[in-house]
Structure formats: C-alpha cells, structure tokens
C-alpha cells in the first residue's frame, strides 16, 4: 500500500469493522451525518448534472467513494442512481461493505486498495475517469495529504466534481471533533482522530488548487438535538450550516 495510508489507523478501523452498520455503534456520527453529507454532495453534483431534483439526483454519474468503510455513503450514492466504486485500505471493512451491499440487493464495485495503488494497477480504467470523487471523513486520516490530493486529481475527469468532508483544524474543531466526541460523548472511539492531521478550509483549498482542484463551495455540518437525544447523551441528525468551525464540507471542480 502507498504512503497515503496510515497503517495504525487502518488497524483501528479493521478492529471495528463488524460495527459499521450499527447505528448506535462507534460509527453513529457517520450515520447521523449521512443525510447532510448527501445533501452537500448533490448540491455539488448539480454543477455537472441537469436533472438533479428528486430521487435519481446522481443518475448515471461514475462515482468514486474513497475510504468507503462499510459502505454507509456508497449505498446511498448507488440508490441515487450513481455507478459507484468504493475503495478502502481496510480489508475487513471492504468485506463488510460487500456483504451488506449484496444483502441490500445493491450493485457496488468495492475494492480494498489505496488511491495510489488504484492508479498504479488499474491505470487505464481509472485515470481521469470519475465524474464525482468523494473523500468523506478521510483526509484527516491520510499520511501524506499532498500525494492523496494528487491521486484524486488524477482519478477525477477534467470538469468532474470533487467533494471532501472533514474536521476543521480550529479550536472548536479540536475541542468538539476530538476531545468532546471521543471522551465526553464517546460517540467516536478513543484515538480515532489525530488533531495534527486536521486541516482548515483555507489550507485544503490552497493545497487542492495546486493539483487543479478548485474548491469554491464550503458548508458546515452541525448536529441537531432533540429531547430524546439529550436524554440518551447523543447527537441528533446533522444539518448544513454556514459555520465551518467544526465539521465542514468542501466541493469544487477539477480543471
């Protein structure tokens, strides 16, 4: 595997892989963010697809879900009409994703591979081929962000859309995204995040631009709280917000 993959992180995700689809389990935050993430992805995909209203809003798009884990996002993308390739460096996670998709009667091309190896071994099939490349809650886990961004630029076709979602390297991002989530609410397993790898929207935009990815759409994600959420010490579903202080999404075009 290439140097974008952090072995230690992959081991942690592999150890939790049988819990990907437990909605109250260690990946509950991802489940609760998923509708908002999809809303943001559709918003960005609307640049390249005309008929994006309704349930087939990604109809026919060739989509790459990087760091797909157990397939939480990939399954939604395929239901929205996209042709989805889901890749992840954890073999255990890919196994879970494949099983889940089969039982859900969904057709998704899952592959246990890093972005660099995908370009290396399946170059003809994937170079500049994807209409939509998504790295959701992934960039804060990769070893070498510059290589990772370069890989994404190579995978996305010219004029295609790139979407990131991640945690801001801000004071609030570190407090809530790391310490509060891991130690107080315990909705994310301890040690999931390393604040050193967090990135600000400005830095992400600057580094992406160096690889011809022009990020121009930024949106925050904020959790909602209902009475039963407070009683159960958990977040409600996430919604889009203008504040980028904690979780945010960045979308743009590869030129």
């Amino acid at each position: 595997m290439s140097n974008t993959v952090d072995k230690k992180e992959i081991e942690q995700f592999s150890s939790l892989s049988n819990q990907w689809w437990e909605k109250s389990g260690p990946f509950s935050a991802l489940h609760k963010m998923s509708n908002a993430r999809i809303e943001f992805i559709i918003q960005n995909a609307s640049r390249i697809i005309n008929n994006n209203i309704g349930i087939n809003s990604l109809d026919g798009l060739n989509c790459l879900d990087i760091g797909c884990g157990g397939g939480i996002l990939s399954e939604k993308l395929v239901r929205l009409g996209a042709f989805v390739t889901g890749i992840d460096a954890s073999e255990d996670s890919i196994k879970v994703a494949k099983e889940h998709a089969e039982k859900s009667r969904l057709n998704i091309n899952y592959n246990c591979i890093s972005t660099s190896d995908l370009l290396k071994f399946e170059n003809e099939k994937v170079l500049n081929k994807f209409d939509l490349v998504i790295a959701s809650e992934v960039i804060e886990h990769v070893n070498d962000r510059k290589v990772f961004l370069s890989d994404i630029a190579d995978l996305c076709r010219k004029g295609g859309v790139v979407v990131f979602t991640t945690i801001n390297k801000s004071f609030l991002g570190m407090v809530f995204g790391k310490y509060f989530a891991e130690n107080i609410l315990k909705i994310v397993p301890k040690g999931t995040h390393n604040v050193q790898k967090f990135v600000t929207p400005e830095t992400l935009a600057k580094e992406s631009a160096e690889h011809n990815i022009i990020l121009d759409n930024f949106t925050g994600f904020k959790p909602t709280f209902k009475i039963d959420n407070i009683i159960n010490r958990e977040f409600g579903d996430f919604k889009l917000t203008s504040s980028l202080e904690i979780n945010y999404g960045a979308g743009g075009i590869k030129i």
Binding site: S34, E39, K76, R79
Partner: peptide
Amino acid sequence: IKNSLKFGNDLGDKY
C-alpha cells in the same frame, strides 16, 4: 418515501 429516497436511504429506514 419520497423525502427519504432523495437522501438515498433504504426503504426500511427509520426516517
């Protein structure tokens, strides 16, 4: 059903 499917949810989703 319509409101849920626009997020790509499974038909059995609690939503």
